[in-house]
Every structure is written in C-alpha cells, then in structure tokens.
C-alpha cells in the first residue's frame, strides 16, 4: 500500500530580503485509499506544500523529510518523483507551444510506465478518458494548454491523472476558477481515480464546494505554514460556517 509521509517539513523561498520560511514544520501521512483535504486561507502555504513535494526548484527544503513507501523523495529529481508515483495537478498548468497534447501524453505515459504504451490500446485509452472528461477530441492535436480556458486546463490535468495513474495525487486548487459544470466533470474524474482504492489523494483547496462532490476522509486546516487542526469531514462543515478567523485572527470566510 502506497504511503506518502511528510515529517516536520520546512521550506523557504528566496526573496529580495533573503530566504523566507513558508512551511514551518508540516507533518502529514497520506495512505492509499485515503482522501485528505487541506484547507486554509490564502497565503498559508498550501500551494508551497504541493510544489515542494513535487520538487519545484523555487522552493528550498531546509528541514524535515518526505518519503514515498520509505523512499526519500527529496533526493529525487522532479521527473524521478513523478515516475515513483507522485502526481501534482497544478493550479496554473503551463503552456508548451508547438508540443501537441497527444505527443505530450504519450511521452509522459511512456516515461511513467517505463515502456511505450501499445499504440492501438493507447489511442482507445486516451479517447475514453477524454470522453469521460467531456474533452473535445480536437484538443489532442492542440499545443499543450495553449489557449485553453481555465476549465479546459483543469480537465486536462485530470486527464493526465487518469492516464498516469499515480500512487499519490496532489490536487492544487483544481477546483478554483471552475464553473458548476466543469467542477462536476473534474470531481467525477477524481472520484474515478480514487475508486480503485489503491491511490491516495491530497486535495488542496480554499473552498468547501468541491468537498460536496469528493468527501474527504480527513480534513486539515493549514495556517501560518503548518497544519493547525485535523479532523474528519465535519471539520469542513465547521470551516464553511465559521471561516478561518479562528486560525488567523482575521476575518476571512471559507468561501463556498
């Protein structure tokens, strides 16, 4: 069973005034079959956690450990982490002009699976996943994320999730900027992914509305660079009612 274990993780970013610590000792364990939601106000460091685990060079790990099934994730390059079974659905997927979506997907699948998928089954697999996510087949020949709307980008992140089938998926504000319809499609995609019970999901969100589609097993409140409270899904209801004021001292509602 896959387990992502984060212990006392401390992360800094470089600023004009020198390094600034964003994560101040994060402890979190995500096991296969579990869905964790991390909620918190803007600027609390939620996204930093996802990027640091994925290995973005901007974030410097200054302390703590991250392991996947006992393997040291922090020692791995970005692509090694992905091949080890980590996946990050990004809040702002990057455009790559001139590289077609189909070429990108196949190259990624080949890298993650360790061999090129057989063409015939691959084409079928991609078509079915695109259909489930209500993506127009014409997108396969468009450049990666280029000129996609916010909703189209998020659908394609979930398409990659479906095709790469990681052990642990981190979804960084995948729900933000989605209309009701797109939110449903994306949530269904995540639900299909976790239905196998063999994968863990870490859902990072500012809002509670996605949690009505995807019920988390655990909810963690993130504030000031660490987890300040953990509970079951009832904690999300409480946040919706009371906002983050209790944790930040400032009046900021958990948006719906």
């Amino acid at each position: 069973m896959a387990t992502l274990e984060i212990k006392d993780l401390r992360v800094s970013v470089a600023t004009d005034d020198g390094p600034k610590e964003i994560l101040k000792g994060v402890d979190l364990t995500v096991r296969a079959g579990e869905t964790h939601a991390i909620m918190g106000p803007n600027g609390s460091g939620k996204s930093t956690l996802s990027y640091a685990v994925a290995g973005h060079p901007k974030y410097e790990v200054t302390g703590g450990t991250v392991t996947l099934d006992g393997e040291d994730v922090l020692e791995m390059s970005v692509d090694e982490r992905a091949r080890a079974g980590l996946f990050l659905a990004m809040q702002y997927p990057v455009e790559v002009p001139g590289v077609s979506m189909s070429n990108f997907l196949r190259t990624a699948a080949t890298a993650v699976r360790g061999e090129a998928p057989k063409l015939r089954t691959w084409v079928k697999e991609v078509k079915e996943s695109m259909k489930e996510l209500e993506i127009d087949p014409a997108f396969a020949e468009r450049s990666v994320n280029e000129g996609f709307s916010g909703g189209e980008k998020k659908r394609h992140e979930i398409l990659q999730l479906a095709l790469l089938n990681p052990k642990i998926a981190i979804l960084d504000e995948t729900d933000s900027g989605l209309d009701v319809d797109a939110l449903r499609v994306v949530s269904e995609g995540v639900s299909r992914f976790r239905a196998s019970g063999e994968s863990g999901v870490l859902l990072i969100t500012h809002y509670t509305r996605i949690l009505r589609h995807i019920t988390p097993d655990f909810v963690h409140v993130f504030a000031g660079g660490r987890i300040v409270e953990s509970g079951g899904s009832e904690l999300a209801d409480q946040l919706e009612a009371e906002g983050y004021v209790k944790y930040t001292g400032a009046a900021e509602a958990a948006g719906v």
Partner: peptide, 9 residues
C-alpha cells in the same frame, strides 16, 4: 518543471 512533473526526464 511541468514536463518533468509528468515523469519526462
């Protein structure tokens, strides 16, 4: 980063 995060060396 984006491409590498999808496992591409």
């Amino acid at each position: 980063f984006y491409l590498q995060a999808r496992g591409i060396p």
